[in-house]
Design a protein around this nucleic acid. Structure first.
Lengths: 355, 355
DNA sequence: CTGAAAGCGCTAACAA
DNA sequence: TTGTTAGCGCTTTCAG
């Protein structure tokens, strides 16, 4: 069974190539009879149009790119899920690219998009992305870009985010109200808007509670697990160690718990822990982990839906389409007041939509 | 800045289109001088070849598809990671498709590949994929397919798996040695090879330990979390409930822990739990979870590497290239012998490469 | 070593 | 309503 093309169908049916093409995509100037005949035949020979020929001709690929730092993080995998659901519904194909937190990779990935490979781009930038000329350049070419979560402020386009400032504020207030008076904030970047907003919320909460906000309580983690382990261990072993800790990345929770176990710190008695995380296991950790859960699936879905809307109606101004979807604070055992019995704690556990 | 093509460069440089094309891809019958001049100019005008024109002409897309049931499972996200790393190295692009455990979706996804959109396919089938004519058909078209993890036995091509039988055997033996005498096996399909192999290992271990293997101990879970919760709760609430449980899917661990918490069963005293899982949080669960960890990243990487090899040398016979990469048994608190003190348990904890 | 020409499979004017 | 024609941008013989 050799590959079957429009030309072949035309020959078989004694019609012209153009007629087949139009009939197949329901062009309104083709006779019903012919349409039926063509469709039936195409189906019978299992015809599938060559997407690349079509892309070349139409200058549209029906393909989008998703550029992410990584996939092994519940936030991103759930976001991909959301993106894929919409894409499949809309008949788009999704190319996935991982930057692995490397600016260099991100640059070379975006460079390729200049070729017209994709109609639009969904992206979350790396921790290294301070310079953004590569994004700027792509944007200037007229390729629609929608950022989600890790946005790039300098690019004037739609951004799908969650309420990071409020989340940072809420979670810090919660720790303060649970009795913490020295809260460490683990971040992964000093310039990612997402990190800056969360830490701004953290600082504001401290101020509002008449606490000092020290630079030394801001801890910059790396992309290397062992380095982070060592760093966190050092900090939690200090004499004046924090009695509360906020982790702004999911995977740090494992490291923190591990360190506490290894140096004999009891959560939440010795130290309270909260984490920005989408892990479904948060509730069954030892102790269960208080989290700020981002609406990952929703964010992916919204970003994708918006991008497709932009691709379908050219008059849509992405500049004015940013969306903020609130996160949820799940209060669990890792951050509750000391001295409250387990049963009481259960009552304290709650789920708060951050506003 | 309008899109720059080979034709444009040819005009600008006063050369022919063919010369430019050849010069850019280092055709050996072009003068060094010309090559340099062309390259330099192409770089200066930021030329990026149109991939679709090239694909159309060469009948090669430099693109592969990855078809998975879902992404929000550590196994699959790590596998994607492995795949992407190799793809990026080899200059391939990866299209991602989620079947969401639906055979219908899987069929329509594969149908599209008949078009020549992708040069090859990496896939893990759905729990519903009993009939496989859609895969057969694609395979017959000569599109190389490499299965990983959830393979389809009926298709004669390369399969990258882990030692599922041995894993099932090892984990069951471990539970028996920890004192269990009634072990429930949670599965997600009665026909997925991966499930059948694991359960075969489970049954063999029971027999070798002179235990009865009852069909009623095999529990078929669904894709719906609430249904699973209800089902597991029912089973663990029975008078003759199991005192050991093996979950063959990562996400079931959360459900099991939740059920135990809700009905007051203590792990591991009342019931021991083990799970096939790649979750990094396994070690910090309450109690820490014994797992069989599949080499997810390696499997993805191997599958991708193999596919690219097949794409590069047409004489490679995928039929003979299957690989089995062993899993690891991580023994943790959730499955240890009752009556052993916490400190002792620590010594018991170990990591065993299953063979 | 370079160029002319044909064509990958499809679409979109424009004719008939 | 259908057919003719001219490409989309690139690769690849085959001549020069």
């Amino acid at each position: 069974m050799s590959i079957i093309t429009i030309k072949q169908i035309a020959r078989d049916l004694g019609l012209s190539i153009a007629t087949i093409s139009k009939a197949l995509r329901d062009g309104h100037d083709i006779g019903e009879e012919t349409k039926k005949r063509v469709r039936a035949y195409a189906l019978s020979v299992n015809y599938t149009p060559n997407p690349y020929a079509s892309s070349l001709r139409k200058r549209k690929s029906k393909t989008i790119a998703v550029v992410l730092p990584e996939v092994t993080d519940s936030f991103f995998s759930k976001a991909i899920n959301g993106i894929e659901v919409v894409a499949q519904m809309k008949g788009y194909h999704v190319l996935i690219y991982l930057s692995h937190e490397s600016l260099l990779r991100e640059q070379s990935i975006l460079k390729d998009f200049q070729s017209g490979r994709v109609d639009g781009v969904l992206m979350s930038i790396t921790t290294e992305t301070e310079c953004n000329s590569h994004i700027q350049e792509l944007h200037a070419r007229g390729i629609p870009i929608v950022f989600f979560d890790r946005v790039c402020n300098e690019i004037d386009t739609a951004k799908i985010t969650t309420n990071d400032f409020e989340s940072g504020y809420a979670v810090t207030s919660h720790l303060l109200e649970s009795g913490c008076n020295k809260i460490g904030f683990l971040t992964i970047s000093n310039c990612l808007p997402i990190c800056m907003k969360r830490s701004a919320g953290y600082k504001k909460a401290l101020i509002d509670h008449h606490m000092e906000s020290k630079e030394s309580d801001m801890i910059l983690c790396s992309n290397n697990e062992e380095e982070n382990y060592t760093l966190i261990k050092k900090i939690l072993s200090q004499k004046k160690r924090p009695n509360g800790i906020i982790a702004s990345v999911e995977k740090l929770s494992t490291t923190i718990y591990q360190v506490c176990k290894d140096i004999g710190l009891q959560i939440p008695n010795d130290i309270k822990v909260v984490c920005f995380s989408n892990q479904s296991t948060a509730a069954i950790l030892n102790p269960s982990l208080t989290t700020v859960t981002q609406p990952a699936f929703e964010m992916g879905k919204t970003a994708a839906a918006l991008l497709f809307k932009a691709l379908e109606k050219t008059n849509l101004d992405l500049t004015k389409e940013s969306v903020i979807i609130p996160s949820t604070l799940h209060i669990r055992e890792s951050s509750v007041l000391a001295g409250i019995s387990k049963t009481k704690n259960k009552l304290l556990q709650k789920e708060i939509l951050i506003s």
